[in-house]
Amino acid sequence: MYWQLKYWRKDDRERAIDHISALRSHIAQTVPRRTASNTLLLATWNVRDFDSNKFGQGPRLAESFHYIAEVVAAFDLVAMQEVNEDMGPFEKVMDLLGPSWRYIATDVTEGPSGNGERMVFLFDSNKVQFKHIAGEIVLPKSSLVDGGHQFARSPFLVRFQSGWFKFNLCTVHLYYGDDSGEGYTRRVAEIDSIAKCLKKRADEDGQNYILLGDMNVVNPDDETMKALKKHKFILPADLTLDNDQLRWTSNMGRNKHYDQIAFLVRKGELELGPSEHNAGVLNYYKAVYTEDEAEAYFPLGKANGKWPGTPAKRKTYFTEEWRTWQMSDHVPLFIELRIDFTKEYLKRIREGD
């Protein structure tokens, strides 16, 4: 919904349109094209503190909402983490996405670990159907994390269908903790608990399960990843046999593996789409809020009182801090899945199955 830009000041309008055009071009080079019925583009994105400004780094500029909407619209279904209690800013994104887009959100998780956050699924209803099952996962007493904890933020599971593909989609924002000690132990335990829970369900009901979100996985060889894979989850790197670790790093610095997409799917129902780049990340900072734009945004952002006094320091602050509160300190991780199984179905019934 670009029409709102017509009423912006000339300088703001031109800057935003130039960035939107650059972002659209980068998306076209990075993300497979959406299809009507052949493939599903699924993504997970932790959008930093959206959008309470409780840390005093914002507020987000009007143009940022356009860029966030442009990123979401590159996909068919997006799991978004760190949406705050006040849904007003989120509704601005929905308005920009247009009338076919829907969302399903959790309530905020109570307590300090919950941080006042919601988890949300955004989806294009022309492509994805909500199948009327949704709920937050609460562990039974016998399965509590690390001796007595529920999850820091309750995982959210929703049943969807796109084309032939029916699946239960669970999004998480798991405990961050530390890289050692008790915090690390709980970090591993949360991943293990949700993976074990979904594996048990899949064994019992025979349905497809996808687990995605900010899992705070340290690296592919760490115990955090082993806790996920020991329950037979398959990850995009497994599917592509690609050893390029940069392809799966989703933090702004491109050196962490926090965000993941993992599958427990029935035989024959997990197949990547035909695009050359059918899994990876979308680094929008190649198109918007680029590293050389600190001085251009200094007049717009300096009201927060945190911008340093020299151009060199302002560039560092802009790159490492300010722009992450406009977009995020994570970039979306995505995968293209095949969802048209017509040929296989017709073959089976032709053969009498």
Rank of each mutant, 00 (worst) to 15 (best):
M225G: 03
L241E: 15
E351R: 14
D221P: 06
R348N: 13
F156D: 07
V83H: 04
R24G: 15
R314F: 08
H26M: 10
P140H: 01
S125D: 08
D340K: 02
S143Q: 15
N168M: 07
R153I: 00
D242F: 03
K232Q: 14
I133S: 15
A152Y: 01
G268I: 00
V108W: 06
F318V: 04
V172M: 03
S142G: 13
F263I: 04
K92P: 02
R314L: 02
K229L: 11
R34L: 08
V31D: 00
E291D: 13
D242K: 06
L41Q: 08
D340V: 00
V217K: 07
F130C: 04
I137P: 02
F341N: 09
H277Y: 15
D124S: 06
K306H: 11
E182N: 13
N216L: 09
A105N: 03
G305F: 05
G309A: 10
V71D: 01
T319P: 04
G111N: 04
L198I: 12
L346M: 14
Y258S: 12
Y284E: 13
G147A: 07
P99E: 07
S275N: 08
H26F: 12
K166C: 12
D214C: 05
H231R: 06
F165V: 02
P32H: 08
P59S: 01
A202D: 09
N219E: 10
L264M: 02
F75N: 03
Q161H: 13
M1R: 08
S143H: 12
F50G: 00
R60H: 09
V108E: 05
K232I: 10
T35A: 01
L300S: 03
L157I: 14
Y285V: 08
V217L: 10
L5A: 07
T342P: 02
V31P: 00
L139A: 09
T109R: 01
W101F: 11
V83K: 01
S52I: 03
R33D: 12
R9Q: 14
T185G: 12
R118H: 07
K10F: 15
A312G: 00
V78N: 00
M87K: 05
G88T: 14
Y184C: 12
D107C: 12
E276Q: 13
H277W: 12
T249K: 15
A287L: 09
W325Y: 14
D353G: 08
G135R: 01
L270Y: 09
V71T: 11
L96R: 07
H277I: 13
D107Y: 13
F263G: 01
R201P: 02
T316S: 11
P311R: 08
